[in-house]
């Protein structure tokens, strides 16, 4: 077999030239295009990754803001509830105070009205009792009434201390009379008995006068020169009325 060395050499050179041609006009441009596309894809991927990271950060920020809003809302609600509770408590206390004041006022008014009603009832009962007593006394003969009141005077004078009785009789020795005032005029016989028994109780030298005053209702008043011994119902009723006016209990 014959080998043409010129052909061999030319084919070797030709192949080397072809390698250069294809490297220059095929592989290099195509690989550059592929690399450019890959770089663009990687750049877009990097941009997408960056955008995703930014989106995640934005989402985290929004989440944090939302949590902050939730906390702020909870705090505002808590504060509002506390203020509402405080206001309700204040209103309740004020209402309680006003209710207590109203209740206290009502109690006072009620007590006052009750006192007034009680006073009125007492006064009415006093007037009724007085009226009843007057009617009953009117049916009792004046001599008996005079006798009863005379005994009452004697007992009272007898019960007094001697010094007190002497101070009462002071001035009677100068001719000043003792004036015995009764609710009804005493008959002559009763007046004699009164004069005799008063002389016995106070001394014989006393001048005694008799007078009548229907306002006494019943009983007697002994008008000494310097003092008055009241043993009449008028004085007793006056004391009762004074107690009623002072909202006190009758003695």
């Amino acid at each position: 077999m014959h080998l043409d060395w010129w052909t061999f050499a030319l084919q070797t050179v030709n192949f080397g030239i072809l390698v250069w041609l294809l490297h220059r006009f095929l592989y290099k441009p195509v690989l550059q295009a592929i690399d450019a596309r890959r770089a663009e894809i990687e750049a877009r991927f990097a941009a997408a990754t960056t955008a995703e990271a930014q989106a995640r950060e934005a989402l985290a920020s929004v989440e944090a803001q939302r949590e902050g809003i939730e906390a702020e809302r909870a705090a505002a609600l808590k504060e509002a509830m506390a203020q509402a509770e405080a206001a309700a408590e204040a209103r309740r206390v004020e209402a309680q105070r006003q209710a207590d004041a109203l209740l206290d006022g009502a109690r006072k008014t009620l007590a006052q009205e009750r006192e007034e009603a009680l006073d009125a009832a007492r006064a009415a009962s006093l007037d009724l009792g007085l009226d009843i007593a007057r009617r009953l006394l009117a049916e009792v003969p004046v001599e008996l009434r005079a006798e009863a009141w005379l005994e009452r005077v004697e007992q009272h004078l007898a019960a007094m201390e001697p010094d007190e009785r002497d101070r009462m009789k002071q001035g009677m020795g100068d001719g000043a009379p003792l004036r015995a005032v009764t609710a009804a005029p005493l008959p002559e016989a009763a007046a004699g008995a009164w004069r005799e028994r008063l002389h016995r109780a106070l001394g014989d030298g006393a001048a005694i006068e008799f007078a009548d005053d229907p306002a006494l209702i019943a009983g007697v008043e002994l008008h000494f020169p310097t003092s008055i011994l009241r043993l009449s119902w008028r004085s007793t009723l006056a004391g009762l009325k004074a107690e009623i006016e002072n909202h006190g209990q009758p003695r």
């Binding site: 043409d4 010129w6 052909t7 030319l10 084919q11 030709n14 192949f15 030239i17 072809l18 041609l21 294809l22 006009f25 095929l26």
Partner: peptide, 22 residues
């Protein structure tokens, strides 16, 4: 330099491949 048929054919192939690539 003698130019043989394979060399000419190879040139043609080089022209097709190189020119086509360009």
């Amino acid at each position: 330099v003698p130019i043989s048929r394979p060399v000419v054919t190879t040139w043609a192939i080089m022209l097709v491949l190189g020119g086509g690539s360009w």
